[in-house]
Design a protein around this nucleic acid. Structure first.
Lengths: 364, 364
DNA sequence: CTGAAAGCGCTTACAG
DNA sequence: CTGAAAGCGCTTACAG
């Protein structure tokens, strides 16, 4: 006489795990192995992998237990082929600062850490006319899951349109609202610059210069604008004679500062649009035989590592680049999950006061 | 009456290209499209893609013409699935210098530029015990084409053994001969350090200090060794009382220099094991109210961008990091092509003389 | 030198 | 809630 035995859930689960354990030695498992051991179809395993709700909780639990026991991970190449979409997240950048790039990479990697996504690097040169074409080819061939765009590539509207046309998700990091909230990380550069202005005004400076970045960078406008507004709110004005354009480079900062030092009335403080230019300004001041901050106070922007390594250490405005990268990658995942975001994610830089700023000589 | 027309090769080729041109609008081509238009099997197209010699030159030419006309590129995901090997090259690094990392990335990207390979980033922490396990999982799941290992991960023999066991190609970049020539990029750090020693001796320094890197870094030994040997060849010796250990960081350089400044007899020149520590040494000298190079000459190692931005600009030893990255990636491709290399590829650093070194005060 | 069949490890409609 | 069949775009033996 046969007797129908209806095993309870715990028994069933234990049996499945045991069957899985026996399989262990046979090398890397596939979806078929999981299905066979779980006694379900591979489609059901696929549903579990993809978190489909259409699986009985009990079935799901058994499948998950076997997956855990075998340390199974689905093959990204096979999934990509079937999904027509790879598990690569591309960082498309033209930012010249290695520090910026590395920090952004770190942030993105933080967010991708426990996922199946890999970060691939796509440096570009915006002065190369072929760069959108190359990117299109990359996209069509590698079908990246999504792209992250820091400044200044993030400011290229035509490029983003191409991404949309090719059905590729992206997140733009920029100092202006260039896209819908779900595709943007906003940085309030103008507010950071305003903090620099307030700091210098509070120290008593009246005669303040600004070395701004190139007109082609949105951040240069934002920073100049915020600085100017805050000066005006404090009853000062940004003297056009003390406003010089640089190229965000060390050399341009050095040259701009040299010009400022020979102005009719030498400024007692200078706000440089980034740390690179501030570093150049240091050298110009030194070469002129002047002292920082005794003769001239200097403020930078970015808080790159060089800021703390200069002597005296540079007062500057810090943008949390790593956190921004993390947020951008998280937003990309959110976007893929179909979340509709209404509010933009934004970051406000903060001034870091070190040793390069002090009250002007007359007021010391 | 039908007449057999045997078209010549040129006609045949032109016809194929025309057929391809007609196809153009239908979206992205696959290997099947190419095969159909070329009137061959897809296996033959696959042979052409993979540069198999087993294809009649004429057939190959026609297939290549159609591929070019359609701008066809094989799907990397599909190839990866069939080949059980992806087109990803992993950069596995724990190097703390952003400048080093970014330059290495650039070099690798240079070499991968016109290939189908993508660079993926795998930062690791050697102090994390789980890091080999995580890497193994990455390897087994993503089946990277190969890995590039700069110092100090490159010095981990057990890790490389795991790579071999998992049948993954790799290239180690190190200052010692740790592996066979086909898997190594060698840097002659000791020779660079020797150049620093010769430079200081030539200037007339007798009383020379050295701030070396941490014992756990092979480069620290190589640099100290090369420096010491060259000093001895010049009839000097490395005074143990003027040899201090730092941690390759700014702060450690500052502290080490402070100790040296209070030595019984202050050194007239200091060789720092890297630019970071040299930068710290600058600050210590400044804080002590001394001048560079008038009171103390300083030499760094690496030639990171900060070297040229300091005041006075830092004399340092430059390693061509970007070229090293390029060579490493090229070597990986060579390895995959089955080339057996007998001679190791090596790079010798060179001193870059700037403004931080001069004859000692007494001899000016 | 060339091709038809099978397979890499997944997912997508479709049917139940 | 579950499964059998077909397909993603390639390559690998195998046969000729």
């Amino acid at each position: 006489m046969t007797q129908e035995i209806k095993p309870d859930h715990a028994t069933e689960l234990a049996a499945a795990v045991e069957a899985a354990a026996e399989f262990r030695q046979h090398g890397r498992a596939t979806i078929n192995d999981i299905a066979r051991i779980a006694k379900v179809s591979k489609k059901t395993v696929s549903r579990v992998i993809n978190d489909s709700p259409l699986v009985k909780p009990r079935t799901r639990e058994i499948v998950k237990a076997i997956i855990a026991e075998l340390g199974y991970a689905p093959d990204p190449q096979a999934r990509a082929l079937a999904l027509r979409r790879s598990f690569l997240v591309g960082l498309v950048y033209d930012n010249p600062s290695p520090q910026y790039v590395v920090n952004m990479q770190r942030g993105i990697l933080d967010a991708l850490e426990e996922t199946d996504f890999q970060l691939v690097l796509r440096p570009v040169s915006r002065t190369d006319d072929h760069y959108p074409g190359r990117l299109r080819q990359f996209i069509q061939q590698h079908k990246p899951f999504g792209l992250i765009l820091p400044p200044s590539v993030s400011e290229d509207d035509a490029l983003c349109e191409m991404f949309r046309a090719n059905d590729v998700d992206y997140v733009r990091i920029a100092s202006g609202m260039l896209d819908e909230p779900g595709r943007m990380i906003l940085t309030h550069d103008s507010e950071g610059a305003a903090q620099a202005a307030r700091h210098l005004c509070a120290l008593g400076h009246e005669h303040i210069a600004h070395i701004h970045g190139p007109e082609s960078f949105r951040s240069a406008h934002e920073r100049r604008g915020g600085f100017q507004r805050a000066l005006e709110e404090a009853g000062r004005a940004l003297d056009p004679g003390l406003t010089v354009e640089g190229g965000y480079t060390f050399d341009s900062g050095l040259q701009a500062m040299e010009r400022l030092l020979y102005a009719k009335r030498r400024p007692t403080a200078v706000f440089a649009g980034n740390d690179e230019m501030a570093t150049g300004a240091y050298v110009a001041v030194r070469k002129a035989g002047l002292r920082i901050p005794d003769d001239v106070s200097i403020v930078g922007f970015d808080d790159t590592p060089i800021a703390g390594r200069l002597w005296p250490a540079l007062t500057t405005v810090r943008l949390p680049i790593r956190e921004m990268g993390r947020a951008a990658a998280a937003l990309l995942l959110e976007q893929a999950a179909g979340v509709e975001r209404e509010e933009v994610i934004s970051f406000t830089p903060e001034i870091v006061v070190r040793e390069s700023t002090a009250a002007p000589a007359g007021r010391a």
